[in-house]
Design a protein around this nucleic acid. Sequence first.
DNA 1: CCCAAACCTTACGTTAACGTGAGGGTTTGG
DNA 2: CCAAACCCTCACGTTAACGTAAGGTTTGGG
Lengths: 186, 186
Amino acid sequence: MTRRHLNVAQPGDPALAIFGVKDSRSQHGSADELLKVGALAKSTGKTVRAIHLYEDLGLIESKRRSKGAYRLFNRDTEVRIHWISKMQSIGFSLSEIQGILKDRVVADSAHRTAEELQTFYEEQLIAVRAKLAELKSLEGELAASLNYLETCTTDCGDDHAVSECQECSTQTSNRVPDLVRGARLD
Amino acid sequence: MTRRHLNVAQPGDPALAIFGVKDSRSQHGSADELLKVGALAKSTGKTVRAIHLYEDLGLIESKRRSKGAYRLFNRDTEVRIHWISKMQSIGFSLSEIQGILKDRVVADSAHRTAEELQTFYEEQLIAVRAKLAELKSLEGELAASLNYLETCTTDCGDDHAVSECQECSTQTSNRVPDLVRGARLD
DNA sequence: CCCAAACCTTACGTTAACGTGAGGGTTTGG
DNA sequence: CCAAACCCTCACGTTAACGTAAGGTTTGGG
């Protein structure tokens, strides 16, 4: 009872099934298709430790335990973990992911749950678009810098000391890309 | 001499000036325009501690110290720090940023230095484009999920238990967006 | 000249996301 | 049925990027 130090959704919470799935893949495999943690780790590219952590954080849940207390997961957990990986690689923290999953309301109302998810994903969409904008801007800056540097390496003629770049006569624009300026020291 | 535990570029390294700047802003203010750490912090939105850290990591450098050892930075450090912030917000770690700055070769050859930077930025551009692709994919998934959920909240009619979503007859597609599937529990 | 505000160095604390054993059961192929 | 391969539960270690506090010096306006 006092064992869990982490913010975990009550283990007693009914394992909510949210939004229908007509998709066939998710309905099969009732009992035998269960994975032990090692197999799950291998198939998801995560470590056993990571999977344990995710469980502690309430991000995943094992269907049941073997007689010897081995965790047994069903296949859909792979989907969940891949999703987690994706979210992570995009910049979400585990606690943010936790937030997403917790957001699946407790009240057993499909409409309310759907609305909550909608609200959440709308916010996420805005955040994602902001990140996209930033990255695009960086892409542009990188391209500009490469362009600038290209001129340096092809049009500059004889090599010279870096300090002489101060009086460069090769570059036509007087605009030095931020990524070049930023990388400079003064 | 044994005081620095961090990977710092040799303090003795000549403060390299890389690539010319015709831009007027960077040529002015010889001595009086210096900023104390507090002012720099305020103008960049960083904390004093962070700035000290950046200095220890060799990401920035104070022009000189006052008689009482106060750090005095020149204006261009603001540019550098804003650049650092941008890089961070996009997902680069301080040590990666360190890598970028270290990459400004020691050999005093403008051509070689330019080539190094080029190589580096080319890699970065690829990485950035990969991240962009991932984010775009996520954007699409979010949009699809919102679309799916929109149908739930508007076309579904009477409210019902979440578990009944399993036999949904409202959704026309049999494809449940990953972000909805991923958020489900089984 | 005086004192509050700002700065200095040193060093321990913190959150995140696992890594890495320790000590001890469980499974399973041969 | 037995050893190798897995798994379990603690629980402390680690890296990153600062936060925070302690104890002392420097600045600058009144």
